[in-house]
């Protein structure tokens, strides 16, 4: 018997993206990249972005981690392709507030579309870093090109 809270965390979409991640691998060309590392659990990934003006024309990730971090990276790349840098940063804020449980209770995160499935993460404080690693890395790539970041 699988607990419902557990099922809420490991939704089918998350499991699918874990198994078959989208936008996986290094894109060439790319003009932004960063390395993200969670030393506690060993999650380690790279984010690559190609921007033209203010628009993210292409984005990908590479690396390994748990189902939460891998699917989060995969879904993030899907969500941000074609978006502006400003929108990407807004998405980051919204996503971060969602997984850390900082948003109001009646917020259904409809604007986040598929990314809203990570709502369950807020019930697992130790897993918040897993879900947000790719997002922090993406921001690092946009802000400080080629720097590496750590969750600790």
């Amino acid at each position: 018997m699988i607990n419902s809270e557990l099922r809420e965390l490991y939704q089918q979409v998350i499991l699918d993206h874990n198994k078959n991640p989208k936008n996986f691998g290094k894109i060439d060309p790319h003009n932004h990249s960063a390395e993200g590392f969670n030393p506690l659990c060993g999650d380690h990934l790279f984010i690559y972005l190609q921007t033209e003006g203010d628009v993210i024309t292409n984005i990908s990730f590479e690396g390994g981690g748990c189902a939460i971090s891998k699917s989060s990276a995969s879904l993030m790349t899907e969500a941000l392709k074609g978006k502006s840098i400003t929108e990407a940063k807004e998405f980051f804020e919204r996503f971060h507030n969602m997984v850390t449980g900082q948003a109001s209770e009646d917020d259904d995160f409809e604007d986040l579309d598929k990314l809203a499935i990570f709502q369950g993460v807020r019930d697992f404080p130790v897993r918040v870093k897993c879900a947000s690693l790719s997002w922090h890395t993406m921001i690092a790539a946009l802000d400080n090109n080629n720097k590496s970041i750590s969750t600790e």
């Binding site: 557990l6 198994k19 659990c41 060993g42 748990c66 939460i68």
Partner: peptide, 14 residues
């Protein structure tokens, strides 16, 4: 096989 230790830890914790 194919399952990250962190996910194992969360499920066992339950």
């Amino acid at each position: 096989d194919g399952i990250h230790p962190h996910d194992i830890g969360t499920i066992l914790d339950f």
